[in-house]
């Protein structure tokens, strides 16, 4: 990897954001799909945990590049749900 690649990697890390689950639970609904443009604060996933619906909001705006969990999946606290660029 030359220095040019490395600086690209650095930029990529800066612009990419991962939205993580704040608590353990099961995915009840995924409200976005790959390619969607979303705004910071928008609800993107609803988890079910402790018999409560727990909305997860985007911490920042961006375009969805990957949906990491599907409806019914268990997700632990701190696990990635959505990747943004």
């Amino acid at each position: 990897m030359d220095s040019h690649d490395e600086s690209w990697l650095h930029v990529w890390r800066l612009i990419m954001a991962i939205i993580k689950s704040e608590m353990a639970g099961t995915v009840l609904e995924v409200k976005v799909k790959v390619g969607d443009t979303i705004k910071g604060g928008q609800e993107i996933v609803i988890l079910e945990s402790m018999k409560m619906e727990v909305p997860v909001s985007a911490s920042q705006s961006g375009k969805v590049t990957e949906v990491k969990k599907q409806v019914g999946d268990f997700v632990n606290e701190g696990e990635a749900l959505i990747e943004l660029a």
Binding site: E22, M23, S49, M50, M52
Partner: peptide, 10 residues
């Protein structure tokens, strides 16, 4: 606060 983590105590 039910709005955050369902109001569950952590």
């Amino acid at each position: 606060q039910p709005l955050v983590k369902g109001g569950v105590l952590f």
